Computed example of a mutant assay.
Amino acid sequence: MKEFDLQELEVATDGFSPSRIVGKGSHGSVYRGILKDGNHVAIKKQSLGLQKLGDNTKLENEARILSSLHPHPCLINLLGISYDSFGNKILVTEYMPNGTLHEILHLSAMPLSWPKRVEFAIHIAKGVGFIHESDPSIVHRDIKSANVLVDKNWKAKVADFGLAIREDELNVPAGTIGYLDPGYTTPCKLSTKTDVFSYGVLLLELISSRKVIDVVESPASIVEWAVPLIQKGRMMEVVDKRVVLPQYTRRSIKQLLRMAARCLSPTEALRPCMPQILAILESSILSPVPRPLSINLIPEIILKILKSKKMRISGTCEDHDIRSKKMSKHTLPVREILIDLTLK
């Protein structure tokens, strides 16, 4: 792993200027940096208070987990590390110019289209599924919209592995209220299905654009609000009202909401695993949608019908055996074909 010189990172961030901060968390801040080669990077650094305390556990853990994984297009890419003046680790990752999914869902005036929401759901499922399939499995423990970053090509990537641990490691239960699996109460309860529960909450948030915990709503919890609606078959009431939905999307929306409800099952064994979720997303939800029939395709379709009936075309065009003549819109106008069929 590349080790960056601290001075280079200070220059890249204008001395870690507050104007360069693009994100904040309990562990510290993330700065946008421009390296001397012109590349934009994100630099994650401990807060001053934690630096003095020497509490660098989250960044140390994130570096440990990410460096153990092969690069994946749906996970944030760790470019290297550095150390501050107290000896605490600094992380350098790829820069994601479109911010977090949380910002896009709750702060943007322009709502996401339905296809983009499904695409993001797939990206996240691929990223989470990848870490679950490592040996031993890695559990992220903090799947939420604020930990999903979006790159310049509008591809979503799972980030912030500060709480991630391997499934065979014991640790105090951790996560974010609203996304946290209520069954994860002791270290021995940890499993990949813990992330599946959080993913189910994130799906509801992605579909509805409602905050996971919103004290101005009743009920305040997105799970307590959405799951009863899904169970009663009132699934379209969960969908973001700002999004215009063609009729053909209703089936995929309902299927996605049913899957979200399965992810949120109190019984862990009833929750699907990430490969199953991804299979449903890719095979059913993203199945090709019939497009409106192009007028240019009508002659070809009519030709096939006539061939099957062994009919002949007459009228303004010379009689030809349809079985031996190749039709084109230039030699056989659609209007003439329709008129001819009507007269026969």
Results as ranks from 00 to 15, higher is better:
K52S: 12
L9S: 03
D151M: 15
Y184P: 03
N61P: 08
L180R: 09
P136F: 10
F4Y: 08
I124L: 05
A269C: 09
E10L: 14
L206T: 15
I90Y: 02
E300V: 15
S145K: 01
E318W: 15
N88P: 06
G15D: 05
L270F: 10
Q51E: 12
L149V: 04
I76Q: 02
A121H: 03
T267K: 06
L306E: 05
V30E: 05
L79Y: 07
V92T: 01
G200F: 01
L91M: 04
L256Q: 02
V244I: 14
S68V: 00
V289C: 15
D5G: 00
T342A: 11
T185Y: 03
G87T: 05
V172S: 11
S17R: 08
H140S: 03
L229E: 07
N147Q: 01
S294Y: 04
L338C: 12
N61Y: 07
Y248S: 14
T331H: 11
F16T: 00
R20H: 10
V227C: 10
Q46R: 11
S137G: 15
L50M: 07
S82D: 00
A42E: 05
K152P: 02
P71T: 09
G80L: 05
I81W: 01
S287A: 07
G99A: 07
V227P: 04
P73L: 12
M236H: 08
H320L: 13
Y248G: 11
L6M: 13
C317L: 15
V118N: 01
V216K: 11
P288D: 11
M236S: 14
L257M: 04
L270Y: 12
K58W: 13
V92P: 00
L306Y: 05
K232F: 04
D321E: 13
S191P: 05
R291K: 15
N88T: 03
F86K: 13
